[in-house]
Design a protein around this nucleic acid. Sequence first.
DNA 1: ACCTGAACACCGTTCAAGT
DNA 2: ACCTGAACACCGTTCAAGT
Lengths: 229, 229
Amino acid sequence: MTGSPTTPRGRRDRPAKPALTRGGIVAAAVAVLRAEGLEKVTMRRLAQELDTGPASLYVYVRNTAELHAAVLDELLGTIAAGSAQGSPRERLEQVLTAYTTMLLEHPSLARSALTARPSGPHYLNLIESLLGLLDEVGVAPAQAAWGVDLLLQFATATAAEHAGRETSSPAAGGEEWDALAHALHGASDRTHPHIAALTGPLLSGTPGERLSWGVRALINGIERTSVPD
Amino acid sequence: MTGSPTTPRGRRDRPAKPALTRGGIVAAAVAVLRAEGLEKVTMRRLAQELDTGPASLYVYVRNTAELHAAVLDELLGTIAAGSAQGSPRERLEQVLTAYTTMLLEHPSLARSALTARPSGPHYLNLIESLLGLLDEVGVAPAQAAWGVDLLLQFATATAAEHAGRETSSPAAGGEEWDALAHALHGASDRTHPHIAALTGPLLSGTPGERLSWGVRALINGIERTSVPD
DNA sequence: ACCTGAACACCGTTCAAGT
DNA sequence: ACCTGAACACCGTTCAAGT
């Protein structure tokens, strides 16, 4: 009654320990990410979650960075690139915004994606979509090829910038004066005339406005800048 | 003979332990960075270097991230923004290339700069230079203000991407096939026609060519894309 | 008031030894 | 052949207790 002859039985009727697989490890990692953030997605914690020792994970995953990249590719599956509407430029902006928005839910994942790029099926689909849209916009193929990198780097870096202040306090008052904003305000107009003249614009805009402007500036630049040779 | 009455004497005539200051901590951090890389610039290691306990450093530095930002500002002092030559566009490209080149010597510092932006005097000088050059190029002030952010983010992210493979092997053969390159080559032209058609361009270019093209594309986009309101 | 020893609560990765 | 316990070599940060 307690455990079958073919399954190792633990104390009582513990749910059968599933065989370790790469997919199982990544799935557990996604679950921990959603519940507690990337900081908790560690080899030791995952091993605990999967009822084994950390050393066992290294059979399926080269290191922590590779694991994080696999997690990101998994999350990429949740953004629907097909649902964008409007002109090619608008759809391009929508796809990049969706990608950035997803990353903004896990800025520390964006941070690690900058170093350990994903290369899974969902990332490939994203690149394919972007190349298709750039083609529709009329960007020359060679420029589109280099441009995709620029666009993805921008989106990833924009999200990564928010890592660290992830678990920030709910801002006791409203505006959180960061160190750079403070330094810009303090710049003397004798030594730093341009900063002094532009303090407002330097700090203006919501994150959404900045993102949208950045994407448009990038597309405008990409279509007008030819690659060497 | 061993120690003066006003200095605490250790065993033998150990060099007098200098008083702890923020500047001293940052200087020690820069020395360790140069000698052994950012991975070794830890609170514990610095405390050891300064002959005290890690807790003492927290009197002068809020946390590790803030320390890394201070280190970057210090290094920024070594890039001479004034030595650029040529047209404003060329000088702009030179300043950004110098900044990126410096960061590429310490990619992990770039990585942390993305999250904990520096805000020291040298960073302010860099922003001032860039605003001045954008003005000379003829970029509208409001666009220049948002553009500086884009340019610095691009330079920083470009360097940050190289973190991790910092202590990579000297490439046993020549080209190091990373996972993404491999995935792009493997893409089917039925499911990913654009990738299949552009595999060459997607992977072409030296890092230097990519950087230079990126800076030019960014400037072209910034000058042509007006900010909202 | 200022400083810090010691502790708390963790990490990634390796490898010798088991099955 | 495959898997893993235990160890190695570290971390950041806090706080009670000292001077």
